[in-house]
Simulated assay, not measured.
Amino acid sequence: MSGVAAMILFNIVSPSMAGSTAQGISFASDQSYPESMTWSARQDTFMVGSVRHGLVAKVDKTGKYTVFVHDARLVSTAGLLVDDKRNTLWVTNSDPGVGDRTGAASKGKLAAVATYDATTGQPRAYYDLGSLSEGTHFANDIALDADGNAYVTDSFAPIVYRIDTAGEAAIFAQDPRFTNGDGFKLNGIAWHKDGYLLVGKYNTGELFRVSIADPRKIDPVKLPEALTGADGIQLIDDQHLIVVQNLGADRTVELVSADGWASATIVRQERSIMSMPTAAAILGDDVYVLNSRLDTLFDPAADKVGDYLLQKL
């Protein structure tokens, strides 16, 4: 398919399903099923991924959906992060088996990261993280530290990867606690300026603090309850963390910690309007949560949908 044809196909927007309301920003696409989102203050727009089409699109504040990156190497775009300072868009590439370009060679094995010029969408670099170890892989979420080093979770392997500013990719942290249980494991990740990562575990609802100076130092954050289905996480500030839960919970909680994330308590929670919330982004004083409706994509019997919501909390 040519680039022009792809733009025509994927930029279909239903006026009745796009717009900004008190509930948030609704938008429509050709059943793209976005799982990830990021906000670019520099460009004044959200960017969202696509589990089904393996692309990146922009969603503006009115709900207008426009394809931005259409790269044939991308099977399912599972994690996005825009670095406005360096004008770089980071995208994780995986294959859960429901994308247009899924295949036996990549399904459950693909773990890669691609970077693009955040203004033009032109490719910059591509990192094959799955080749760093044997077994199944799924590159999920991504975080950046102040220097521009990237950290990536693998949901099928007990690994957090690091891509440094020289472009060298390596296994950064590995722990047997990351691998217990079935299904998706490591998922959301956030960098804290005090020198550690906060990493969520999807199937068990645990939250870990991983030291950047010594990645062997991994401590569980004491929580009032297991946050089962913890997907995307987003720091509001040093002491407040947004955790988006699905897997039946379908809510977003705000955690607060007064002891450097040795422990945390829940200070706010809100139900998702649509099904399967997956990611959050901060825009000024507001938090937006992507209602992905991915449950309907993974259910063979469900009707497929093309309308989604960036829910305003």
Rank of each mutant, 00 (worst) to 15 (best):
E134Q: 09
I142L: 04
V244T: 00
L207E: 01
D141N: 14
T165E: 07
D147M: 07
Q239D: 13
K193F: 06
G232T: 01
D175C: 12
A150W: 04
G181E: 04
F184T: 06
V244A: 00
D250P: 06
A139K: 06
I212R: 13
G232S: 07
D231C: 05
D145C: 08
I212A: 09
H240P: 10
Y127K: 06
Q239M: 10
R177Y: 12
V210M: 08
G188S: 10
H137S: 11
A118I: 00
L132Y: 11
D164T: 01
D182I: 12
T120H: 12
W191A: 15
F184K: 07
G167S: 11
F208E: 02
K185S: 03
N180Q: 08
A146I: 13
N140M: 10
F178E: 01
P224C: 13
L132C: 08
I242S: 01
A170H: 09
Q174H: 14
L247Q: 04
A139R: 05
T136A: 14
G205R: 02
I212K: 08
T228N: 05
G130E: 02
L198H: 03
S131E: 15
D128R: 15
Q239I: 10
V160R: 07
N149E: 04
E168C: 10
A173T: 04
H240N: 15
A146Y: 14
R124G: 03
